[in-house]
Computed example of a mutant assay.
Amino acid sequence: MNSATTLKFPFKFAGNLREITIEGEAYLQVAKDPNRPFILHTPKGAVQVLGTSFNVNTYDSGMVKVSLVEGAVAFNSVKLNPGQAAISTTETTVTTLNENDLLWIKGRYKLDNTPLSEITKILPRWYGIQVVIDNSKIADKKFTGTILKSEPVEEFLDAIKITTGAEYYYKDKILHIH
């Protein structure tokens, strides 16, 4: 499970179904059991798991992304093959799996031309800090690089400062970027 993720499941699965609910992001490996289907509920639909390894991301409240590594899943009536991802907003579309989506499992988050406004959504999950952009003009500045969870957030912020010119400071335990 990635940071700031909630997983709900019963103490013991009742009947022939194995059902759980997720908000956030998790990488799951599910044993195949045709007699006891595994269903993962998300805010945008259910994933029927057919014995597999996959990632599910629901951090963005308007979107769910299911990335299949191996096996098979069906999400909103779309069956995925290994190496595919399904993105559900108002409808579900299938794309190629982006390996960067799985780097969080290894404590890395790769950013590719990502606006600072999006980065400020990641930092609270990974570092447990509140982040505010003081200057709206820098919210759209883009950064390419990697966050390493094992390093202090200041290492990453220094890289942002060098590449975008955005400064940062702390006030009342809140990280301000300007």
Results as ranks from 00 to 15, higher is better:
Met1Cys: 14
Asn2Cys: 05
Asn2Pro: 07
Ser3Asn: 09
Ala4Cys: 11
Thr6Ile: 12
Thr6Tyr: 09
Phe9Arg: 15
Phe9Met: 13
Pro10Gly: 03
Phe11Arg: 08
Phe13Ser: 09
Leu17Ala: 15
Glu19Phe: 07
Glu19His: 08
Ile20Tyr: 00
Thr21Cys: 15
Glu23Leu: 15
Tyr27Lys: 04
Val30Phe: 08
Ala31Met: 14
Lys32Ile: 14
Lys32Gln: 11
Asp33Ile: 14
Pro34Tyr: 00
Pro34His: 05
Asn35Gln: 12
Arg36Gln: 08
Leu40Cys: 05
Leu40Arg: 01
His41Asp: 12
Thr42Asn: 07
Thr42Lys: 03
Ala46Ser: 11
Ala46Ile: 09
Val47Gln: 03
Val47Glu: 01
Gln48His: 12
Leu50Pro: 04
Thr52His: 01
Thr52Ala: 08
Ser53Glu: 08
Phe54Tyr: 00
Phe54Pro: 00
Asn55Arg: 03
Asn55Glu: 03
Met63Tyr: 11
Val66Gln: 00
Val66His: 00
Val66Trp: 00
Val69Gly: 04
Val69Leu: 06
Ala72Arg: 01
Val73Asp: 00
Val73Leu: 03
Phe75Val: 04
Phe75Leu: 04
Asn76Val: 10
Ser77Ala: 14
Lys79Ile: 08
Gln84Phe: 03
Ile87Asp: 10
Thr89His: 10
Glu91Cys: 10
Thr92Leu: 00
Thr93Gln: 11
Val94Ala: 04
Val94Met: 02
Thr95Ser: 09
Thr96Ile: 15
Leu97Gln: 05
Leu97Cys: 10
Glu99Cys: 10
Asn100Cys: 15
Asp101Gly: 05
Leu102Tyr: 01
Leu103His: 03
Ile105Asp: 06
Tyr109Thr: 13
Lys110Val: 06
Asp112Ala: 14
Asp112Glu: 13
Asn113Gln: 13
Pro115Val: 14
Pro115Phe: 12
Ser117Asn: 07
Ser117Met: 12
Ile119Ala: 09
Ile119Pro: 03
Thr120Ser: 13
Thr120Gly: 10
Thr120Asp: 13
Thr120Cys: 11
Lys121Tyr: 07
Ile122Ala: 05
Ile122Gly: 01
Trp126Phe: 14
Tyr127Pro: 02
Val131Asn: 02
Val132Lys: 09
Ile133Glu: 00
Ile133Ala: 01
Asp134Val: 10
Asn135Thr: 02
Lys137Asn: 14
Lys137Leu: 12
Asp140Phe: 11
Asp140Gly: 07
Lys142Ser: 09
Thr144His: 01
Thr144Tyr: 02
Gly145Ile: 12
Thr146Lys: 10
Thr146Cys: 07
Thr146Trp: 01
Thr146Tyr: 06
Ile147Tyr: 04
Leu148Gln: 09
Leu148Thr: 10
Ser150Met: 14
Ser150Tyr: 06
Glu151Gln: 13
Glu151Ala: 15
Pro152Ser: 12
Val153Lys: 02
Val153Ser: 04
Ala159Pro: 13
Ala159Phe: 13
Ala159Leu: 15
Lys161Val: 15
Lys161Phe: 14
Thr163Asp: 15
Thr164Ser: 08
Thr164Asp: 06
Gly165Tyr: 05
Glu167Tyr: 14
Tyr170Arg: 09
Tyr170Phe: 12
Tyr170Gly: 06
Asp172Met: 12
Ile174Gln: 05
Ile177Ala: 02
Ile177Phe: 01
Ile177Pro: 00
His178Ser: 15
